[in-house]
């Protein structure tokens, strides 16, 4: 994601610029900016905080603080349907992450290492899934899967329904792009002379890749994989359109419940999902910044 290593000279000048430029009467501007930033972080995290707090309330509508309880978590873990959905979600995330990480890393290597005709076209195809609205991708995959399943029925006479397989296919399709982008960023800093040095010291190209290239871009690959995993866990729109009967996924379950009413049980599920995501993002930041 965005590089947060601005330890260059200009950035430091920027940091020191404020107090000097802003001496005297102009501190109002500085105060306003600080206040604004404070309010923005409140805006970003207030609702999340409220959600977490109200997952522990005794209030059965989940919107009022009437005392502490863990009842909703107990109920959630006892709910077979929810736990099944959670299991499905993890399974989908795991498979789609493995596949998209491999494919995305290969694509990133191709794009950063080679100059070839049609490279801009490939670039566009890689970026498109990231920029188009998810619903457009979801409906097109739905229509396509309907066509393919119908074809299978006509040819083999067997009725195949949408299932976790279709969901996984869809998740891989959008994850590939994200993995490619993250791995490419880590390849940009890679000094190709290191590979030449390895060849020079007697390593063949296979040994060079596994002993030099791979360990060095591993943080990028792990970062991409964690991103793919998180996106898959959180994905709701493509899952909604592509999951078949009886194959429910956690975000879709939450969506179906949330459309009805606020309940403390949803608060509890949501809190759990938030905790997983935040753990993953912190993990990914640690992985990518450890150099």
């Amino acid at each position: 994601m965005i590089e947060a290593q601005p330890q260059n000279k200009r950035a430091q000048r920027a940091a020191s610029w404020w107090p000097r430029f802003n001496s005297g009467a102009l501190t109002w501007g500085r105060l306003t900016l600080t206040l604004h930033a404070f309010l923005m972080y409140l805006f970003l995290y207030g609702p999340i905080f409220v959600l977490v707090v109200f997952s522990f309330t005794r209030d059965e509508f989940g919107v009022r603080w009437t005392g502490f309880t863990l009842e909703w978590y107990v109920r959630m873990f006892a709910n077979d349907r929810l736990m099944g959905a959670a299991g499905n979600t993890l399974y989908v995330a795991f498979v789609s992450t493995v596949v998209s990480t491999i494919f995305g890393t290969l694509l990133a290597l191709a794009m950063e290492r080679h100059r070839f005709r049609g490279r801009t076209g490939v670039d566009a195809v890689i970026y498109l899934p990231v920029v188009i609205p998810e619903i457009a991708m979801a409906v097109s995959l739905l229509a396509f899967s309907a066509l393919v399943l119908e074809f299978i029925r006509v040819v083999t006479g067997e009725v195949v329904r949408r299932s976790l397989v279709t969901v996984i296919i869809g998740h891989i399709a959008f994850s590939i792009s994200f993995v490619t982008i993250v791995v490419r960023a880590s390849l940009k800093h890679f000094d190709r002379r290191l590979e030449e040095a390895a060849r020079d010291l007697g390593a063949n190209s296979w040994q060079t890749f596994w002993r030099i290239t791979f360990p060095m871009i591993l943080p990028g690959i792990l970062g991409g994989a964690l991103l793919a995993f998180t996106l898959s866990l959180d994905n709701f729109i493509i899952s909604l359109f592509l999951s078949g009967p009886g194959t429910s996924l956690l975000p879709v379950e939450v969506y179906n419940k949330v459309r009805r009413a606020v309940t403390p049980e949803i608060n509890a599920i949501s809190t759990l999902m938030l905790a997983v995501s935040i753990t993953l993002v912190v993990l990914s930041q640690l992985v990518q910044r450890r150099r």
Binding site: P47, L51, V63, V258, V262, S270, L274, S277
Partner: peptide
């Protein structure tokens, strides 16, 4: 962090 967390859940929080 919000980019990585479930959009649905964050929107739902506003319902509360």
């Amino acid at each position: 962090i919000p980019f990585w967390t479930n959009f649905l859940v964050r929107i739902y929080a506003w319902q509360i």
